[in-house]
Design a protein around this nucleic acid. Structure first.
Lengths: 193, 193
DNA sequence: TGTACATCAGTGAACGCGCGTTCACTGATGTAC
DNA sequence: TGTACATCAGTGAACGCGCGTTCACTGATGTAC
């Protein structure tokens, strides 16, 4: 059947948004195209009208995840007191809400290990997308030059991503809360001048 | 055929040691039992004389990896100047050698994301093994009580694990070196009193 | 205005593949008598 | 000392399964005339 003009574009976006969540919560191999399409009430065959391969979807989904994260980041910054933006960002990143929301959370914490195992070419693609988004928060990181701020932002993000992942391993609620508290204090102190 | 008394035990150890490397460099799904056994010049069927399942091997291999890491940690501590043990540990953990040696490196950096996706019961098993090993370095972390030191050690390790993973994503050698330098400085400052 | 044809997002059977796991079997050596 | 049997680490064919991907097909609507 023929579909309205924007129909295909909408379907593509639905696939990407859904994939972005599935990849984060289950990893590349845990997220299958069959399940993904079934969730959208479509069949697996149609997938290839939108993407050349699962790998191409993965890159698109990673970028989508970063876009979503950028949205949260902007919202946090807007609600933070002037000068307290970075503290608010750390607080949000290391919150129990973020720990619980794997599917909607930071794709670096959820996918960096898998990306690290890919080919240099593939890693380069992911890095370019990532670095653009990290620049967004660099403005609020202390540092003399723009470059210094961006570099520090990368160190901060990668460290907190590891911490977020570890928090997701911890089973006991109280232990997890304690670990997140310790971590927040650690990063708060680390960004002092 | 019948084999010497310790034969089975030796085979089991060979499987675990080899699996510990394969899991770290390729992840749970990238490491297959067929390839693993073939490397040891055995056939896949024999695997089940040693382990009930691939999952059981994964836990054993994770513990093996931590044991190996503990060996490196002790060696670093012995060669470090008195009072500079933690600095030496950070330097070693965030070294280019460690970044390049995924198969022989920290299993937290290589596998934490996958472990985070497992059941609470399974995560508990991994955590118990992990916490025992982290206690080993807690002695060199600043803190008033043993508990405070252990908690800080966990924050440090998880952060550096995220940083190590990010370093493995970076393609360009110079950028990677710069990122590791920035990170080392960051963690050095963070452990100052 | 009516008719024949083209389009193309989505369908679902099919393909090839590799995986984890099972199982009947092997055969050199240990043990029982 | 010799013989019959038990043991069990390792073998390799086989099983069931789910995956990513391909492909002939569908059919409502747009377009050409």
């Amino acid at each position: 059947m023929r579909y309205p003009a924007k129909h295909k574009e909408h379907t593509r976006e639905k696939i990407i948004r859904s994939a972005a969540r599935r990849f984060r919560s289950r990893g590349t191999e845990g997220a299958t195209i069959g399940n993904l399409m079934r969730d959208l009430r479509l069949t697996h065959g149609g997938f290839y009208r939108h993407f050349r391969s699962k790998e191409q979807l993965f890159i698109g989904a990673f970028e989508q995840s970063l876009k979503e994260l950028a949205g949260s980041v902007l919202s946090v910054i807007q609600h933070a007191p002037r000068g307290g933006e970075l503290k608010a960002l750390i607080e949000g990143y290391l919150s129990t809400e973020h720990v619980d929301d794997v599917a909607g959370g930071c794709p670096v914490a959820a996918l960096a290990t898998e990306i690290a195992r890919r080919s240099p070419k593939s890693r380069g693609d992911f890095l370019r997308v990532l670095i653009n988004h990290v620049a967004l928060i660099a403005k609020y990181v202390p540092g003399a030059t723009e470059e210094a701020r961006e570099r520090k932002a990368r160190v901060l993000l990668s460290g907190m991503a590891g911490t977020l992942t570890m928090a997701r391993v911890i089973v006991d609620d109280e232990q997890r809360r304690q670990f997140l508290d310790d971590s927040k204090k650690f990063y708060f102190e680390a960004i002092r001048p």
